[in-house]
């Protein structure tokens, strides 16, 4: 089967300051929580980043409860100003271990809650995997925040970067409880930056092959 690979470097450029969006990972950037605006401003879609410090693990049900507290005007169990939420529901720890496998879950399920959390708490970052809604991307630009992806399915590898794990709220939710995690050099990639850069879109522009080879639509005994 013959098809053409496009030449490298076809990612679209625009006047956006994120001029190296979608570029291959070069040197890792190191960041430590809590994040100041200047740190977020330095991150561009496609950057590989090592995160250290305290981050918070929360997913579906914990998000629902956090936003319900905001709706009622009550205080959250944790101050999220400048912080990062990691979308993860870890596996249980073996005895003597800090945590079980702890890779990212699909972020899109948190989209209905995220813009509200960012606006109300000063949350600066999220780690997960997969697409975000346009509302979330707008919130990142409006409030200078960033969305990272960790490698989905690399839960055992990621667990090695987690040095401390504590349930700080909602223990009844089991794997969905709100956890505090202390991480060291957790490897993530910037997907959506605070300038509107979007690695997933840029990646498709760079690597998709428009001339999809034509199928030989010969006789198929099983389908005809």
């Amino acid at each position: 089967m013959k098809f053409k690979y496009p030449s490298r470097g076809t990612a679209p450029m625009d006047s956006n300051p994120a001029c190296r969006r979608g570029a291959p990972a070069t040197e890792d950037k190191r960041i430590r929580t809590p994040l100041e605006d200047a740190v977020v401003e330095d991150l561009r879609s496609g950057d590989r980043v090592l995160v250290s410090g305290v981050i918070y693990a929360a997913r579906d049900s914990a998000h629902k409860r956090l936003v319900e507290l905001l709706d009622r005007g009550e205080e959250l169990p944790v101050d999220l100003k400048g912080q990062i939420i990691y979308y993860v529901g870890p596996a249980p720890a073996r005895p003597g271990r800090v945590i079980g496998s702890a890779g990212p879950t699909t972020s899109g399920r948190m989209d209905p809650y995220t813009p509200r959390l960012i606006a109300a708490t000063g949350l600066k970052g999220m780690i997960g995997k997969g697409y975000r809604s346009s509302e979330v991307k707008k919130a990142l630009v409006d409030h200078k925040a960033v969305y990272f992806a960790a490698v989905g399915g690399a839960g055992a590898l990621i667990a090695r970067c987690i040095k401390r794990a504590e349930v700080i709220a909602y223990p009844d939710l089991g794997p969905e409880a709100l956890h505090l995690l202390e991480v060291e050099d957790l490897p993530v990639t910037v997907i959506n930056d605070c300038y509107g850069g979007d690695l997933y879109t840029e990646a498709l522009a760079r690597y998709s092959i428009k001339e999809v080879p034509e199928l030989p639509l010969g006789k198929d005994p099983a389908l005809s």
């Binding site: 073996r94 079980g100 496998s101 839960g155 090695r160």
Partner: peptide, 22 residues
């Protein structure tokens, strides 16, 4: 990513922890 997945599989097998938390 592929390198991380291969390394992850090796760690999971050696430590007898799940490949993926899900």
């Amino acid at each position: 990513v592929l390198n991380q997945l291969l390394e992850n599989a090796a760690i999971a097998a050696a430590e007898e922890v799940p490949i993926c938390q899900d």
